[in-house]
């Protein structure tokens, strides 16, 4: 099933991006979930998409996988290893899903089929996608479960999803996602449904798997602290647009967009005392709204008249740092 283009080139040293998103738009009728985003991911690179609910971050992940169902409409370009994915037939997308791009979802209980045992669901991947024998698939399933930290995998093969804890279920989802050795893993808020102690373990696992296998990672989250644990590059989304991007620690220490700065100010982990927390005033914009200027302007402390009249272009404030703000340079310089 694996096509020629999906084979990992030796060394993978080319400067060509593994995933290249350009002008991606997703809309459901009049609701605009993604309003044109550009994003490149290099082989082996780890990128986090940060945004609040409704910013279009999850939809972006699904659109890359071709998982937007009607009546949702996708426009723009998603190139994976030089192959255009937008508008491609379901049959040929199938070849990409798994060995090309794999995905881990937020709700692990919902993501696993409740009526099949964990073992049969993992084994199915190998027997269906690689036409392996049952015995070979079973051995690989056990190895995978061990790899993601399931103790006594052999005795748990016949257990059903509801018999596992949330953290263990998410580990199984990760095992299934990496089963076909994907070159890009999309993780859609994989730790949001878990408590903090379990979350740390899952993040460590994802990081380690990513480093060991050399796969690229697109990590979707609303939590900057979580993003910093797994990703090197950050993309901040607001109202279906990318507003800022750059190396994650640089952005964290020196945000160049008012929205990013506001996000940092509202994060309990970034302040010394809770009284310093600054919530972002107002609400995210209506997804059916049409903007003439910057979508963040109505909530932005810096906004002037120009902001609601003309949408700012990306401003390069430093090497690898870009911000979509009329005052990007001032923000970056701390003014």
């Amino acid at each position: 099933m694996t096509t020629e283009i999906l084979k990992r080139p030796a060394g993978e040293t080319s400067a060509r991006p593994l995933l290249s998103i350009a002008g991606l738009r997703v809309r459901y009728g009049r609701t605009h979930a993604v309003r044109g985003i550009d994003l490149d991911i290099m082989p082996g690179e780890s990128v986090a998409i940060l945004g609040e609910s409704g910013s279009g971050k999850s939809v972006t992940g699904k659109a890359v996988m071709g998982l937007i169902n009607p009546p949702g409409k996708v426009a723009g370009s998603v190139e994976f290893d030089g192959m255009q994915l937008v508008g491609r037939s379901e049959a040929s997308l199938r070849a990409v899903r798994g060995p090309g791009i794999a995905m881990v979802f937020q709700d692990s209980l919902d993501a696993l089929n409740p009526v099949f045992s964990i073992g049969s669901q993992i084994i199915e991947i190998f027997t269906v996608r690689l036409s392996w024998s049952g015995q070979q698939a079973r051995e690989e399933a056990i190895r995978l479960m061990l790899q993601v930290g399931i103790v006594n995998p052999e005795s748990r093969l016949d257990d059903y999803p509801h018999q596992f804890s949330g953290g263990m279920r998410q580990r199984i989802c990760i095992a299934m996602a990496i089963a076909l050795k994907p070159r890009l893993l999309i993780a859609d808020e994989p730790t949001t449904a878990l408590d903090v102690t379990v979350q740390a373990g899952i993040l460590k696992l994802i990081s380690q798997l990513q480093r060991d296998s050399g796969m690229a990672l697109l990590f979707v989250t609303h939590d900057l602290a979580v993003a910093r644990q797994v990703a090197r590059k950050l993309v901040v989304m607001y109202a279906g647009r990318v507003v800022e991007r750059g190396p994650i620690d640089d952005v964290f220490h020196r945000p160049a967009h008012p929205y990013t700065r506001a996000l940092l100010g509202s994060n309990p982990g970034s302040v010394k005392h809770w009284s310093e927390l600054k919530p972002i005033a107002g609400n995210p914009p209506d997804k059916s709204a049409v903007f003439t200027g910057c979508a963040f302007a109505p909530r932005c402390p810096r906004a002037v008249r120009m902001c609601s009249e003309r949408e700012p272009d990306f401003v390069t404030v430093a090497d690898g740092r870009q911000s979509r703000c009329h005052f990007a340079q001032e923000m970056f310089d701390g003014r």
């Binding site: 099933m1 996988m65 998982l67 169902n69 379901e90 997308l93 199938r94 070849a95 990409v96 899903r97 798994g98 794999a102 995905m103 979802f105 709700d107 919902d110 993501a111 696993l112 089929n113 409740p114 009526v115 099949f116 991947i125 269906v128 996608r129 989802c173 299934m176 089963a179 076909l180």
Partner: peptide, 27 residues
Amino acid sequence: LNAGYVQNARARGYSWRRLAFRHALRN
């Protein structure tokens, strides 16, 4: 057919027959 586990199975590259008659129908 719209449940998370069917979408997840679809993300693993299964055919629609497998999604419908195995993963969705059993549920």
